[in-house]
Amino acid sequence: MDFGPHLMLALIEGAVLSAVLALTAAGLSLVFGVMRVVNVAHGEFYMLGAVAAWFVAAAVGGAGPAAFLAALALAPLAVCALAAAADLAVLRRIAHDPERTIVATIGLLYILQQATLMGFGPDARPVAPPFNARIAIPWPVWEEGGLALTWPWGLSVTTYKLFVIAAAAAVLAGLWLMLTRTRAGLVMRATQWDRETATAFGIPVERVYALTFGLGAGLAALAGVLVVPIQQAHYLMGGDALLLSFIVVIIGGLGSLPGTLVAALLIGMSEGIVSVFFSPTLAKILATLLVALVLVFRPQGLFGAAGR
């Protein structure tokens, strides 16, 4: 394949990775933005989304769209409820203290991971995509008669991957609208800015925290459900998701949704391109280098506030 079509293929893979990454990192960023805590167990909620999707799809049965759609609807809700319960049972008891929350969520990470190993097993398991038609992508070339379209072998995308990109974009747009246009978003932003004053104006901050923690986990779980027809569910899949989410939110700025989106595109696209042309390891090295540069020259991230 020529360089141009090869690059196009890399960009498509990068866009899919960006979409999944943006959803996962948006959850982590939302939790930090509103609650000012770092959720080290965030990757496990991504993993639980994928694993729950497998269980739901297996329970519904069949390889048609019904099994996947049921998983898409139920798995994030189940993980959202589990995370909200974990917040109320664990994080509220330590008053959402930032340092103790890190330790508590490390514990939560191991509990969720080992419980999944016991209940789901060590094997990777797939969920069938609801549709997976392959669409060939035309490539323009200059010929003697002018511009013509060719169909290079291998330059194609599946309808499911396009769906992943569209679904992530729709969910992130919905999240943005919720935060900026709804009463719930106003309450979350007020809580984010000043917890005590929010309380003095009747906002039940503990309940807002539980819902935010659940929503953040639900976004990660949704990403896990979307990715499971491409990557399969595995009990250790949360590690990479957590690492990449941290990279994205550090570069974008902790708590900044636009920053998270831009950084997810940057990391996802560069990982897609570098992985296709060089190696996935080099992509990780470059991402880590970028994080180091951001931490040295702009510690608040590209879109983060310098502090108040």
């Binding site: 009463r183 106003l186 309450v187 932003r189 007020a190 800015w193 000043d194 005590e196 004053t197 929010a198 003095a200 104006f201 009747g202 906002i203 108040r308």
Partner: peptide, 26 residues
């Protein structure tokens, strides 16, 4: 109603949104 020392407004929110937070309280 409470007007705390140092005002403690929701500085990133607009004037209208700050008032709305007050209205929603009750």
């Amino acid at each position: 109603g409470y007007v705390p020392q140092g005002r403690r407004l929701f500085a990133e929110l607009t004037v209208a949104q700050n008032l709305e937070i007050g209205r929603m309280a009750r």
